[in-house]
Design a protein around this nucleic acid. Structure first.
Length: 873
RNA sequence: GCCGGAGUGGCGGAAUCGGCAGACGCACAGGUUUCAAAAACCUGCGCCCGUAAGGGCGUGCGGGUUCAAGUCCCGCCUCCGGCACCA
């Protein structure tokens, strides 16, 4: 730094304060019971979704949410709260392991290196985390308790072994949970997946489906997020109905339907290809055809089944079922049983009653295979042609319309004509229930949580397999550690690489009998399903978290992260919390009170005429345009995600090196609303940096000889009343904006104040500057702390009390109002802020006198402090 | 197809409860300062007509409600995110 000049130099300020905060443990948070804990303060728990410490290092997307939570944490601290604001590492799982494999390093080594890098990068940004509470899910001291919690689930009968088909991903060499597979491809890496029966540990999250759904009403999350969880849980109410099969005494086919009211229109039945009755119901004549269809269905990859055309395929079994609403001899009641892969074995009962008149899919199937489509509705709208088509079954109708008169059972006990849809459903269910062949039923789309992976880098299960079955490792022997392995790569077989650690696998149980360790490991989401609890009591060696700590800190008051965890992590964490609650281990039932989802930070990229993206290194600016560096072709700017391939990835380290951490933080908050996705614009970054420079110069003279601050700031003096007003307005605005997570407008209001102050720098008093620096501090903490110290602020800014504002100073004595004629602004008038209507009208009339000439005022609308509108003729 | 969100200057965005559209920042233009440049500071900046005063138009499109609509209602279009044969 220039000896003669003191310009704003973040590189000189920031590391010093970071070091100070860390050495003095400024942000260490005491727990209830600690000597320096203050029980009089309210608590505030503000949490980030902790990162996977990937080898790529921090992305500019990370600090976006982290800065937002840091602003809230620092603000709440200054408002007098005990603030819990921790950070840790989601260190087990596929990303860390993939990186380890790519770089041929042991996962433990690679993970440690990545964590060190992440920590270094985060600490450069000045976040006020309590680093004493840092945790890593891959730390044995942590996963001891992950294993212990798993045993609690097991004890409640919520963990079981299953051989049901699961998603297998060949490329990743492991099975995946439902939320990790999208359209038959892996979420990570986009590799194809298929169904395979493999022995797996599964958690019974479906037992909690209803509570997970109902308790969404108790949390403050976005509608979008709640909608995604509701859809994933997928509750549907309807009925299960048993159909007898002709010629198979005692055989019933059970179907699930949400439309029992349409049972009169059931004209065939469909079993999924995997349905257990397929083989026994198929007649000898149909055997060859059915087997052919089953083979074809099995050969289809899941991708083809889900992604390819919705063209219906199917085959007749040769068997017939009996519609229970019709008499045995009635031809309408004898319905053929088909097999088709549009019916999914894992949903409902894996079989449906097909009502082509009331269901689009059944209608398409009936059309394709020329099956009967009996009409069951009698709509009466103005559109007679459509009414007739629906009545005859020529057109499918899924809306609520009146039922036809013939929807009456043979014994007359069910008659749907004249009933509403809910009444008709009720009538049919009651009738079936009385006869013992149907029951009201709620079904969920949610499947149990596939809770194991065939990978090395995860928590081992505390499980031994003996000849008598499964045995749990006693608590005293936890944690079960991973064996060291030099070759930890998946072996291309559906078995964990742990199988190769013979000495580890082959062990003895409590009674010294031979036993084999479980070789599957837990999935990545295991450790992240309870980390928010461990942060409350991270060093507890006797418990996963003391009741005193969790009762005090939980639930999390503000949780910030991306939307990508909508149905995975967030659902699993809610599930584990409820289980721990049921075990009497925590008081709360929902972990995250308020959830806020940040948008994505995107980037510019440049496209040529064909629409191909040209890597940024191959582009150059030419006047107002961007052209191809070699061909000179004009390129179009688009907004897209940052990607190595496009060469448009912004590295936070580079931004800090060039502008400093405060500028990075401020820019990310200034870009736009936190929840929106928005592009990184390198040209905008200097704008916020200039703002910080102006703040610096308000306080610090360029000439070193003058001192640490301007001479007029050396002592207190009376405040300039206009600047005082502006400051109060600014404090009120910033406070309100932090409360609604509108950090962009908070910053703009601070810019407005600084612009005002810059016009009359000598009028600004020390007291005003101290208060301004304080409200700036959550956003740009290094600069703020530096100026606070130079101005001689008491003790540390980080714990100074947030300044108050006087509501009286927020309003001016006079206010300029708009004067409208027929809603158009035709003039302006200045009136007293508390002027009465007559005064405002008089002033308004004077302001637009020439416009009113020759016109009659029909109506005067007066909005105090805003406007007067004349309606004229 | 279904569910959720969005569409405002050249660009990012603001307008919190139906009340002056475009705060703040960027880019751009002009100026002050300077030997010069950078930095800093000042001024202008939605579009159209006009030297100006002033006027007209304007928040994706088409309608509507209202004294008044970016904001409310109806019908569309486009983009983003999620789900997708779930009976």
């Amino acid at each position: 730094m220039d000896e003669q000049k003191q310009t704003y130099d973040p590189a000189a300020i920031e590391p010093r304060w970071q070091q100070f905060w860390q050495e003095r443990k400024v942000f260490r948070t005491p727990n209830p019971g600690d000597r320096d804990f203050d029980p009089k303060k309210p608590k505030f728990y503000v949490l980030d979704m902790f990162p996977y410490p990937s080898g790529a290092g921090l992305h500019v997307g990370h600090p976006e949410g982290y800065t937002a939570t840091d602003i809230v944490a620092r603000y709440q601290r200054q408002k007098g709260c005990n603030v819990l604001h921790p950070m840790g590492w989601d260190a087990f799982g596929l990303p860390a392991e993939q990186y380890a494999i790519q770089t041929n390093t042991h996962p433990a080594v690679a993970t440690k290196k990545n964590i060190d890098n992440f920590r270094r990068q985060l600490q450069r940004l000045g976040f006020s985390y309590d680093w004493d509470r840092e945790i890593s899910t891959a730390d044995p001291k942590y996963f001891l308790w992950t294993q212990w919690i798993w045993k609690q689930l097991h004890a409640r009968g919520l963990a079981y072994e299953s051989n049901a088909p699961v998603w297998w991903c060949e490329a990743l060499g492991t099975v995946l949970a439902n939320d990790e597979v999208i359209n038959g491809k892996s979420e990570r890496g986009d590799h194809p997946c298929e169904r395979r029966p493999l022995r797996q540990w599964v958690l019974k999250i479906t037992d909690y489906a209803e509570r997970l759904l109902a308790d969404l009403d108790r949390v403050d999350w976005s509608d979008a997020m709640k909608a995604m969880q509701r859809e994933w849980i997928g509750k549907s109410e309807g009925a299960e109905i048993d159909f007898l099969v002709h010629g198979h005494v005692g055989t019933k086919v059970r179907v699930f339907t949400t439309r029992p009211d349409t049972l009169f229109g059931a004209s065939f039945m469909v079993l999924s290809p995997e349905h257990p009755l397929v083989a026994s119901l198929t007649t000898p004549q149909q055997k060859a055809q059915v087997e052919g269809y089953l083979r074809a269905a099995a050969a289809k990859s899941e991708l083809e089944r889900t992604e390819l055309s919705k063209d219906k395929t199917g085959v007749f079994t040769g068997a017939y079922a009996q519609n229970p609403l019709f008499l045995d001899g009635d031809a309408r009641g004898r319905i053929p049983i088909w097999i088709a892969d549009y019916v999914i074995v894992t949903y409902g009962t894996g079989a449906i009653m097909a009502v082509p008149a009331g269901d689009e899919r059944d209608f398409a199937f009936a059309k394709k295979f020329a099956l009967a489509i009996p009409g069951i509705f009698a709509p009466q709208t103005a559109d007679e042609a459509t009414d007739a088509a629906i009545a005859s079954g020529a057109q499918c109708c899924t809306d609520e319309v009146p039922f036809a008169a013939h929807c009456t059972s043979a014994d007359g006990k069910v008659a749907l004509a004249g009933l509403s849809m809910p009444e008709a459903k009720r009538a049919v269910i009651d009738y079936l229930q009385q006869r013992g062949i149907g029951v009201q039923k709620v079904t969920y789309r949610l499947r149990d949580w596939l809770f194991s992976r065939q990978r090395y880098w995860g928590e081992p299960f505390p499980v031994l397999h003996t000849k008598d079955g499964v045995e749990l490792v006693p608590d005293s022997q936890l944690p079960v550690l991973l064996p060291h392995m030099d070759d930890f790569k998946p072996g291309g077989v559906p078995e964990s690489p742990l199988i190769r650690a013979r000495a580890w696998v082959e062990t003895k149980d409590q009674s010294a009998r031979p036993a084999q360790r479980e070789i599957n490991t837990m999935p990545g989401a295991a450790g992240s399903s309870w980390y928010f609890l461990r942060f409350c009591d991270p060093h507890n060696e006797r418990e996963f978290c003391s009741r005193a700590a969790s009762d005090y800190w939980l639930p999390v008051d503000l949780y910030v992260g991306g939307t990508e965890h909508a149905v995975g992590h967030l659902l699993y964490s809610r599930f584990w919390t409820k289980v721990l609650h049921d075990q009497g281990l925590v008081r709360h039932q929902e972990p995250f009170l308020k959830l806020y989802n940040q948008g994505m930070i995107q980037a510019f990229a440049f496209q040529d005429a064909r629409g191909a993206v040209v890597p940024t290194a191959l582009t150059k600016e030419q006047g107002d345009e961007v052209v191809h560096a070699e061909s000179g072709e004009k390129l179009t700017r688009i907004v897209t995600k940052m990607s190595k391939r496009y060469g448009n990835v912004i590295n936070p380290d580079d931004v800090v090196n060039e502008y400093g951490a405060d500028t990075l933080r401020l820019y990310e908050m200034y870009m736009g609303p936190l929840a929106d996705s928005k592009p990184w614009n390198p040209k905008d970054v200097p704008g916020v940096h200039r703002f910080l420079g102006r703040v610096w110069r308000l306080c610090v003279p360029e000439d070193f000889a003058i001192g640490a601050v301007h001479a007029h700031l050396h002592q207190d003096r009376d405040s300039d009343p206009e600047l005082e007003k502006a400051l109060h307005r600014c404090i009120a605005k910033v406070e309100g904006d932090i409360g609604r997570m509108a950090f962009n407008t908070a910053i703009s209001s601070m810019m407005i104040f600084v612009n005002e102050a810059t016009k009359r720098p000598d009028a600004l008093s020390r007291g005003q500057l101290l208060r301004f620096v304080q409200i700036l501090s959550p956003f740009a903490p290094h600069l703020a702390e530096e100026l606070w110290q130079r101005l001689g602020g008491a003790e540390l800014l980080a714990y100074a009390k947030w300044p108050s504002f006087d509501a009286k100073l927020l309003v001016d004595d006079e206010v300029e109002i708009a004067v409208q004629i027929l809603g158009k602004v035709r003039g302006r008038a200045v009136v007293a802020t508390n002027a009465d209507q007559a005064t405002m009208v008089a002033a308004a009339k004077a302001a637009v006198a020439q416009h009113l000439e020759g016109k009659t005022i029909v109506k005067e609308i007066v909005v105090p402090k805003k406007l007067v509108n004349f309606v004229v003729k």
